[in-house]
């Protein structure tokens, strides 16, 4: 009996320590006053937090990553919402093929996609690296967008669209007046999931860098190989709090986890 009452807290403590402990150490290390990354931190200072904002390459790659995460996710939704609508509301011949094609980018490892784009689009077409990164991140997020939007469409009765049509609305009008307002939560959830996925993505962007064009996580990995100071820890903490904050707010206001 004692074994069973102890089981739950001990297991939870060990598992949560393993999962979250390293993150707490990173947070602690980012307040270090020392010159090298260490734990326990040597003294307390905010210098590394401030330093993050002064590193030029971080500022540039942060802007790139933001642009890709916001733009790529928005583009994925623009493509994904109509596709989800077709898949959930129409009898579409070859629906399974469309579904498989659209969700394919989730199955194939990102590094392969990145290399393929480098070899067959960037090099032969002399395409702009930012454009290719944008396309790649759009493709990466599309499966998530389709999955989440489809789930919220499945939860919405389709007869309200017919009701709107019989009250005089066009089919397109019915979509904007009746469907869209009711799947807004799902779309926002898809946006957040897509944003986090795109922002944290490394392998896809690995080969897709050009002078001055690099995503933030790739930039961080490159920085870590050269400099061993706590600034990457500080940046990691900042980013982690940013994502946790966004997801927490989303859960609070939208019930995010219903859709994911």
């Amino acid at each position: 009996m004692i074994a069973r009452t102890l089981f739950i807290p001990v297991v939870l403590l060990l598992v949560l320590t393993f999962l979250i402990g390293p993150f707490l150490i990173i947070v602690a290390a980012s307040f270090s006053a020392g010159e090298t990354l260490a734990f326990p931190p040597q003294g307390f200072s905010l210098q590394w937090i401030f330093k993050v904002f002064t590193v030029d390459s971080f500022r540039a790659s942060f802007a790139t990553s933001m642009l890709l995460a916001v733009g790529g996710t928005a583009a994925a939704l623009l493509l994904g919402i109509p596709a989800s609508y077709a898949l959930s509301r129409y009898t579409l011949p070859g629906a399974e093929i469309v579904r498989t094609v659209v969700s394919a980018p989730i199955i194939v490892p990102g590094i392969i996609v990145g290399l393929a784009l480098l070899r067959y689009i960037v090099v032969p077409m002399q395409a702009s690296m930012t454009l290719i990164l944008f396309l790649a991140h759009t493709a990466l997020v599309l499966p998530y967008a389709v999955r989440v939007v489809s789930a919220s469409l499945e939860n919405l009765r389709s007869d309200i669209e017919e009701a709107a049509v019989l009250l005089g609305s066009s089919r397109l009008g019915a979509f904007f007046r009746v469907v869209l307002p009711n799947i807004r939560g799902g779309i926002l959830s898809a946006f957040i999931l897509g944003f986090v996925t795109s922002f944290n993505q490394v392998p896809l962007s690995l080969f897709l860098s050009a002078p001055g064009v690099r995503t933030l996580p790739v930039d961080m990995m490159a920085y870590m190989e050269i400099v061993f100071d706590p600034s990457v820890a500080a940046l990691s903490s900042l980013l982690a709090f940013l994502s946790i904050g966004i997801v927490f707010a989303a859960e609070r206001f939208l019930g995010f986890s219903r859709y994911v």
Binding site: D159, I160, E162, A163, A164, L166, V178
Partner: peptide, 11 residues
């Protein structure tokens, strides 16, 4: 048409 599920607009 009055639908069996009523099909009121929930929002």
């Amino acid at each position: 048409l009055m639908f069996q599920s009523y099909a009121l607009f929930p929002h």
